[in-house]
Nucleic acid binder design. Structure first.
Lengths: 335, 335
DNA sequence: TTGTAGGCGTTATCAA
DNA sequence: TTGATAACGCCTACAA
């Protein structure tokens, strides 16, 4: 039998109204009364029932994040850093974080969003891994559910987001590699409908062109953001007649797959062949030789996204902010 | 203006009762009526309001997990695999997963549990990283909130849990190493109050003793489960006059830190010195040379824990199950 | 087989 | 400065 606001009121010989207002910090309650209420609440371990409050206030004090789990057992540490950021910021803002996993674009994914939206489980969403055209953006906009995202889609909808300049960073990395003498630079792609793929790949092509190098199809490998995918892509790239001297990857995980394929050929990463990822995951710093990567502050981005979401929750009239982040190229001792 | 059960009832000229019962699958509603209701609900995109339902039913259909984040930016992929398992199983059982991060044993951690318990945010908890004496066990037991855990504490409380036989696995690994000729086998510890530390360390000592080797203090290094901690511990172990030929670690993350320290001394892991971790994380398979580890099925354990929790939620009279899992020693080509 | 009505615990409106 | 009261949306005992 949990303690309710009525129990507290009864004990103090006050009305529930007064107790409620005292605890919520309204200023039309006598200071002495407030102190008594607070003391009693603490002593009785009273905490407002969230369901009742939510029903009354029509908000959940909860934000939602649906993890795009391509495989049943997803393994990209990107998400653990991202979720950590969401969790920490949510916690310190006193809202809860609701998490689910779902395969992108599957019916399953839609069900999760629908359940949470219609069931009023969450007040807003954090999105990432955006697709160029993203039904989530359209859907949430139509339902008037606030959301923020990492990466911006092409959908004609206004919303707050953080963008990472993958285009510029990859472009610069390509130019640096060319300066170091590389001419055969390959790129391992992610799924074509993803914003990060379009963005980073465009940077790759633009870098090559700026250096006067013609992008060639045999140096482009399709992949799927996984270690496994990177491994297979590299096998393909390494078996052509004039193999690349550098391989850029859509993300760090893919790059580690490339590492493995390279080693199996008896080559040494970053001595015989240059390999670069994208994300700047913590584990890249433990790899040997240390992976070249483009470091985006995943944890901080996640925290910032939560801040932005809470802001748009509280002041819905504010204009949508759009933040652009320049990631940092990490080239620890390189070939 | 979200659609409520009343809207559906009005549209069909039925009472809310009938609609409610039809949707919940009661058998005292005419089949034809049920079909009409279901069709209308689908068309109107009606989903029951969770807060209202929760208030009425007195349960949240949500389970909670508090991530023990020692650092602000925790980085152990163990947790991403664990959370993935929780999320997947929760999702397929149609309950939600509430997540927060908190430093163990801090006041902050207690606050999270209290908020969720008193606020009725969750119906039960999944715990891991148990301490030998764990206030969470005592607290939840006292509050009569169901929970399950990975690893069992010494607290005199009955509860369902999964145990991994770290003792046996580490012991066997030690014996195998001795067979291979190792005599100087070191151990890098985790925090002493953790169950996994007590368990695995005991296995280490018992293995040595069974092989007729006297454990010696200079081969024991304190650490904290992190990469950084493993790195420092290894530096210490490698600088003694008669350094170890094998280093066992409390977990994989620590082992990777050891890798780094070993390499900085110009040594090659698993050729010049044997290094082993514990967890069997996905990334161990990408390391080079591949890390020796003790593989516990983290993802499946997490799913199983959720199942056990939901079971004890639904049938509170069932006896508590205790599952023991034998982890698997992974020694891919070793010195 | 269907409908009526009361209440889950809170907060907000309004009156005292 | 405080209190009575009415919702929020849903479920269910009970009545029809």
């Amino acid at each position: 039998m949990p303690v309710t606001i009525r129990d507290v009121a009864r004990k103090l010989n006050l009305s529930v109204t007064t107790v409620s207002r005292a605890l919520d910090g309204y200023d039309d309650v006598a200071e002495e009364t407030r102190q008594r209420v607070i003391a009693a609440a603490l002593e009785m371990e009273y905490v407002p029932n969230r369901a009742a409050r939510q029903l009354r206030r029509q908000r959940a004090d909860t934000i939602g994040y649906v993890l795009p789990a391509h495989e049943p057992r997803f393994a990209d540490p990107f998400f653990s850093e991202f979720v950590a950021g969401l969790g920490d910021e949510a916690g310190s803002s006193n809202v809860d974080l609701l998490i689910s996993t779902a395969s992108p674009n599957e019916e399953e994914e839609q069900l999760v969003y629908q359940r949470w939206v219609h069931g009023h489980k969450v007040d807003g969403f954090v999105l990432n891994h955006m697709r160029l055209r993203d039904w989530r953006v359209i859907y949430l906009d139509r339902k008037e559910v606030p959301f923020v995202s990492l990466e911006r889609t092409l959908d004609p909808v206004e919303y707050a987001c953080i963008e990472v300049d993958g285009f510029g960073a990859v472009r610069e990395l390509v130019l640096r590699l060319v300066e170091m003498g590389h001419r055969r630079i390959a790129f391992v792609c992610g799924p074509p409908h993803l914003v990060i793929q379009a963005d980073r790949y465009a940077g790759y092509r633009d870098g090559l062109r700026s250096a006067g190098i013609m992008p060639t199809l045999e140096l482009i490998a399709e992949s799927d953001l996984t270690h496994q995918g990177g491994y297979h892509a590299a096998q393909q790239l390494l078996s052509i007649s004039d193999p690349p001297s550098a391989i850029l990857c859509i993300n760090d995980l893919t790059a580690f797959g490339v590492y493995q394929a390279v080693r199996e050929r008896g080559l040494q990463p970053n001595r015989d062949i240059c390999i670069a990822g994208f994300d700047g995951l913590e584990i890249t710093r433990w790899s040997h030789p240390e992976l070249i990567t483009i470091d985006q502050p995943v944890y901080d981005i996640a925290r910032q996204l939560v801040k932005m979401l809470l802001m748009s929750l509280n002041e819905s009239d504010k204009p949508y902010s759009r933040v652009m982040i320049k990631p940092k190229i990490m080239m620890p001792g390189c070939c």
